[in-house]
Design a protein around this nucleic acid. Structure first.
Length: 835
RNA sequence: GCCCCUGUGGCGGAAUCGGUAGACGCGCUCGACUCAAAAUCGAGUUUCCUCGUGAAGUGCCGGUUCGAGUCCGGCCAGGGGCACCA
C-alpha cells in the first residue's frame, strides 16, 4: 500500500502546501478554546539559520503542535529582530543597503524555517525594521516619556576619532577601534536613558513570582539588580574635608583600620594635585584589564595619602589610602577597610602592615582568637564598645540607629542596577522621535507625524552616522514654534525592539501598537524558549517594558513570560591540522581511532567538543543536513539523547541513526491493517503507558525522554504479532511522533486512511485501566543486597510477599541459616531481609 | 577572587518519594539474509576474577539509613556567570 522508503524531499513540500492551504497554524484570538502562547526568541536575520536556532525552534514547535493536539488555541509566531550593526557592516563592506541586505536574509531564512516544518503563524510575521513596527515603538517611547521614564543626560561613549563613530564595547579591541585601529577615546555625549532603576524593587520582587523560570536565571537577574542595605556615613578628614563611605557591614565599624577611596574620587584627585606620586598612582590604576576576573586577581595596590579619617566612635585617626580595588561608580566611591572581616581588606592590610582587628567571634570566649584570614563572621560582636555581645544583625541596626540619632550617617539601600542608555549613534535602528529646537529645547514629534521613518538614500562610504550627514532628513520645523530645528539623529538600542515584540505578535492593529484586550487574551507567554545568553539583559528589559507599559495603562500584565526555558548549545568536535589551523568536519575523515586530513592523509588532532562557531570551523549547515536526511530526521536528532537544557553534541552517526529510525517508522506504518483482528492486552498496556509517559515528558520539556518512549513503543510493536491492538498501537505511535516528525506523520496518516491532517488530529486518549499492571516484579534483598527477583500479583499483602521472599532458594542460600532480625516490605516493589 | 551548575559504561544519557543502577539511542562485536555490499533482521555489549550467576561499581573521602546515583559533611575535577559592588 505504501512506498518502501519514505522520501522526505517529496513529502516535505507536499505537506507545507497542505498546511498553508488549511491555514492550520493561524491563531484565532476570538477562539473559545484555551489559549496557549508558545514563543521562541526571534532571530537576528544574519543570513542563514544556525543549528542552534534549529534546536530552539524544534523544541517550541513540538510544544506548539502538542498543545494543538490537546485542543488548545496556540499562538506560535515568528518574526525578525532586524535592526542592528551587521547590516551596517555589510553596507560598508559590500556596498549594499542595510534594508536590502536584511530583507534578502529574511527571505532566505524564512525558506529554511518553512523547510524544517515549523508550525508557525506566518500571518503575524513582521520585522522590527518595518516602519509599521518601529513607528508604534516610537509611540510607546513617547508614552514612556510622558510617564517620566525617559530622560537625557551626558554619558561616556567609545569614540573612534578616525571613523568618527561611536563603537560598541565589542568593537574596541585592546583599546583600539576594530576597523580603524585608532586609539579609542572616551567622549561625553548627551544621550537618551530609560529609567529602569525606578522599577528596581519591582523587578527584584517579581522574580519571586516566576516559579517556572530557571533558578539560575532568577539568580543572575537578582545579582544584576544588586540590592544591598547598609550605612552611609561621613568620616571627618584631618585636612578639614570629609569623605562619605558606604558599608553593608556597619556592625564591623570598630574593626575599621583604614579608609580607601577610588583613584578617581575627588579626595584622590585633590591629593594628586599637590603630589605627583599620587597622580602617577591614580594614572596607573586606570591601566590594565577591566574584566572582573582580570581585575580581581590583580594585585591590590594602595597609596597612603597621609590624611587621617576620624573614627566616629573611637575618635582615632585612620590612614586614608587611594586603592585600586575601590570603584567610583558604586556606593560613594569610598569604603572603610575592615581587614578582619573582608577578604580584600585583609589582603590589603596584610600588604601594607595595617592592623587586623577581630570584632566578630564565634563566641565571646574567642574574642582574642588569632585571625589568619578574613572571617565573614555570623555570631557575636567583640571589642566593639556598646555593640559587644550583640549578634551581627542586631549590631547593624544599632550602629545605623546611633548614626542617624547623632546625625553623621544614615541607613541606605544601594542598587547596582543603572539606568538603561538607549541612544545609538547609528543609522540602522528606530529613530528616536524628538526634535531639537534652539528656542523650545527637546520637543517630542507630534503623534500624528509618526512614524519618523529612516531615509533610504544614505551613504555609507564616509565615516560617521549617515543620519547626521544626510542633506535634508534632519532639518525640520520645530513642532512648537515652527522655527528651523533638527531631528534627533540617535536611534534606539535594538534591545528596545525585542522588549515588546511579544505584544505585537499577540495583537497587531494598524493604528496602535496593540490592542490591550487581545494582548490579555494571550499574555503572559506560556512558554518562552531561548539561549541563556539572554538571561540578563533581554529578559530584564522585556520585564521592564512590560511593567512600564502597565504603569502607562497600556496593558494589564506585569510579567511577560510565565515560564522560561533556556536550551543548551549544539556542540561539535574540533579538528586541527599539524600546523595548528582549524579544519572543518568535511576536510577530515576517520579511520578507526585516527583522524586524517582527506586532502593529504596527514594526521589531525581531535580537539574538545565546543560550541559550533565559524572561527573553529566546527559548524554543520542545517540546509545540507536537511537536504541529506530530511527535516524529520534533523528535528528528531535535535530532541534525542541530550536533555534540552544541556549541550547537544552533533554527530554524523547520530543523525544517520535518526534517519534510519524515520524509515523504520515508515515501514511500521506500512504494516497498519485496519482489518486486523484479535486482542493483545500486553501491547495495549504498553501503548497506553507510552501515551501517558510521552505526554508527561513533552509537557515537562523532557524531549529526550519522550523520544525514548517512542523508541520503546516502536520496538514493542515490531515484536508483536498482528492484532487489532497492534494496528491501534501503530496509529497511536504515529500520533505520539507527530509533533516531532510532522512530515512523516502526515504521510503515514494519509497512507493509513486517516481523515484530515495529522496537524489537526487529537492526541490519543489514555485508558487509565490499561496503565495498571496486574503483575509486578519484586526485588528481594538480603541485608540490602539484591539476591533474587520474583513476580507477584499486584497489591499482594505484605505478609504474603514476605513469605514468598523467604521461600526463595537463593534467599535461603544467602541467609545461610542466619537468624532474621527484621524484614522490610515495600508493597509492589521489594522485600529486604535483615539478618 | 566570588557566585552558580555538572560529574553514572567506549559515547549521549535514564533511574517519580531513598527501594532491581545503566532504560532509550549511538558506537562496537558476532550471527542471519546476499555472489558481494548497502539496507534490514537477530544476539551480545559496566568492570574484575577463581566464570559463580560470584565480587566490585554512579568523581574522591566520610556520615545517616534495613537500603544512598538520590540525603548530610568535607574534598577533587570540568563548565558557566560576574560587578574587586564595600
Amino acid at each position: 500500500m505504501t512506498d518502501a522508503r519514505f522520501d522526505p524531499a517529496h513529502a516535505d513540500l507536499r505537506w507545507q502546501r497542505a498546511w498553508d492551504a488549511a491555514r492550520c497554524f493561524e491563531a484565532d484570538s476570538a477562539s473559545a478554546r484555551p489559549k496557549r502562547y508558545v514563543l521562541e526568541m526571534f532571530p537576528y536575520p544574519s543570513g542563514r539559520i544556525h543549528i542552534g536556532h534549529v534546536r530552539n525552534y524544534t523544541m517550541g514547535d513540538v510544544l506548539a503542535r502538542y498543545r494543538r493536539m490537546r485542543g488548545d488555541e496556540v499562538l506560535h509566531p515568528m518574526g525578525w529582530d532586524a535592526f542592528g550593526m551587521p547590516a551596517e557592516n555589510a553596507a560598508m563592506e559590500q556596498g549594499v543597503h542595510p534594508a536590502g541586505w536584511t530583507h534578502a536574509n529574511i527571505a532566505a531564512m524564512k525558506a529554511q524555517l518553512r523547510r524544517l516544518g515549523f508550525a508557525l503563524d506566518w500571518s503575524r510575521e513582521f520585522a522590527t525594521c518595518d516602519a509599521s513596527y518601529y513607528g508604534h515603538e516610537q509611540a510607546l517611547f513617547l508614552d514612556l516619556y510622558e510617564a517620566g521614564l525617559v530622560y537625557r543626560r551626558a554619558s561616556a561613549v567609545n569614540w573612534d576619532p578616525v571613523d568618527r563613530t561611536v563603537l560598541a564595547n565589542e568593537q574596541v579591541i585592546d583599546g583600539r577601534g576594530w576597523r580603524s585601529g585608532a586609539v579609542v577615546e572616551k567622549r561625553q555625549l548627551d544621550q537618551w536613558f530609560l529609567r529602569i532603576t525606578a522599577f528596581a524593587e519591582e523587578l527584584l520582587d517579581g522574580l519571586g513570582t516566576l516559579e517556572r523560570w530557571p533558578e539560575k536565571v532568577r539568580l543572575m537577574q537578582e545579582n544584576w539588580i544588586g540590592k544591598s542595605q547598609g550605612l552611609a556615613f561621613r568620616f571627618a578628614l584631618s585636612n578639614g574635608e570629609s569623605v562619605e563611605v558606604y558599608t553593608t557591614r556597619p556592625d564591623t565599624i570598630f574593626g575599621a583600620s583604614f579608609v580607601a577611596v577610588a583613584p578617581d574620587h575627588p579626595v584622590a584627585q585633590g591629593v594628586a594635585m599637590n603630589n605627583c606620586e599620587a597622580a602617577r598612582f591614580n594614572h596607573r590604576c586606570k591601566q590594565g584589564g577591566t574584566s572582573a576576573a582580570e581585575v580581581e586577581t590583580a594585585e591590590k595596590l594602595g597609596f597612603d595619602t597621609g590624611l587621617g579619617a576620624r573614627h566616629p566612635f573611637t575618635g582615632a585617626y585612620l590612614p586614608v589610602f587611594i586603592a585600586n580595588f575601590v570603584l567610583m561608580d558604586y556606593g560613594t566611591g569610598a569604603v572603610m577597610g575592615v581587614p578582619g572581616h573582608d577578604g580584600r581588606d585583609f589582603d590589603f592590610a596584610s600588604k601594607y602592615g595595617l592592623p587586623i582587628l577581630r570584632v566578630v567571634a564565634p563566641s565571646a570566649d574567642a574574642a582574642d582568637a588569632p585571625m589568619t584570614e578574613a572571617e565573614p563572621g555570623d555570631a557575636v560582636l567583640v571589642h566593639s564598645g556598646f555593640l559587644d555581645g550583640m549578634g551581627v544583625e542586631e549590631a547593624k541596626r544599632a550602629v545605623i540607629a546611633r548614626a542617624e540619632a547623632e546625625g553623621w550617617g544614615e541607613g541606605k539601600t544601594v542598587w547596582r542596577l543603572r539606568d538603561w542608555g538607549v541612544s545609538r549613534q547609528r543609522y540602522w535602528g528606530t529613530p528616536i522621535p524628538f526634535i531639537h529646537c534652539a528656542a523650545c529645547g527637546v520637543v517630542p514629534v507630534p503623534r500624528d507625524q509618526l512614524p519618523v521613518t529612516l531615509p533610504e538614500d544614505v551613504d555609507f562610504s564616509a565615516p560617521g552616522n549617515p543620519l547626521e550627514r544626510h542633506p535634508t532628513w534632519k532639518h525640520v520645523a520645530c513642532p512648537q514654534c515652527g522655527a528651523a530645528a533638527q531631528r534627533e539623529t540617535d536611534t534606539l538600542d535594538t534591545f528596545v525592539n525585542s522588549s515588546w515584540y511579544f505584544l505585537r505578535f499577540a495583537s497587531q492593529p494598524a493604528d496602535r501598537p496593540f490592542d490591550p484586550d487581545e494582548v490579555a487574551q494571550w499574555l503572559p507567554v506560556d512558554q518562552y524558549i531561548g539561549g541563556v545568553e539572554h538571561a540578563i539583559l533581554h529578559l530584564l528589559y522585556a520585564r521592564f517594558w512590560t511593567r512600564a507599559l502597565a504603569v502607562c495603562g497600556k496593558i494589564s500584565v506585569q510579567e511577560p513570560f510565565a515560564s522560561l526555558f533556556t536550551q543548551g548549545m549544539v556542540t561539535h568536535e574540533t579538528y586541527r591540522a599539524g600546523d595548528g589551523s582549524w579544519l572543518s568536519p568535511s576536510e577530515v575523515r576517520r579511520e578507526g581511532d585516527d583522524y586524517l586530513r582527506i586532502e593529504d592523509g596527514s594526521p589531525v588532532t581531535l580537539g574538545r567538543m565546543e560550541k559550533m562557531s565559524k572561527s573553529k570551523k566546527n559548524v554543520v549547515d542545517p540546509d545540507t543536513i536537511v537536504e541529506r536526511h530530511g527535516a524529520d530526521a534533523v528535528r528528531w536528532f535535535m530532541l534525542s539523547d541530550s536533555p534540552p537544557e544541556r549541550d547537544l553534541p552533533w554527530s554524523d552517526s547520530g543523525i544517520e541513526g535518526c534517519a534510519r529510525f524515520v524509515q523504520r517508522l515508515w515501514r511500521l506504518f506500512g504494516q497498519f491493517d485496519a482489518a486486523a483482528e484479535g486482542e493483545d492486552r500486553a501491547l495495549a498496556r504498553k501503548t497506553h503507558r507510552a501515551i501517558a509517559a510521552t505526554a508527561e515528558d513533552i509537557e515537562g520539556l523532557a524531549f529526550n525522554k519522550a523520544v525514548a518512549r517512542i523508541y520503546e513503543l516502536a520496538s514493542a510493536i515490531e515484536k508483536a504479532p498482528p492484532s487489532a491492538d497492534r494496528s491501534a498501537a501503530i496509529r497511536t505511535l504515529l500520533l505520539l511522533a507527530a509533533p516531532m516528525m510532522p512530515y512523516l506523520a502526515e504521510e503515514g496518516w494519509a497512507a493509513m486512511g486517516g481523515s484530515g491532517l495529522v496537524a489537526n488530529a487529537a492526541w490519543p486518549e489514555v485508558d487509565p485501566a490499561l496503565l495498571v499492571e496486574d503483575e509486578v516484579t519484586i526485588a528481594v534483598q538480603v541485608k540490602g543486597k539484591l539476591r533474587d527477583t520474583l513476580t507477584a500479583p499486584r497489591g499482594l499483602p505484605q505478609a504474603e510477599l514476605e513469605a514468598l521472599a523467604l521461600a526463595s532458594e537463593k534467599v535461603q542460600r544467602s541467609l545461610d541459616g542466619a537468624a532474621i532480625r527484621k524484614v522490610i516490605v515495600v508493597p509492589d516493589r521489594l522485600v529486604n531481609i535483615v539478618a
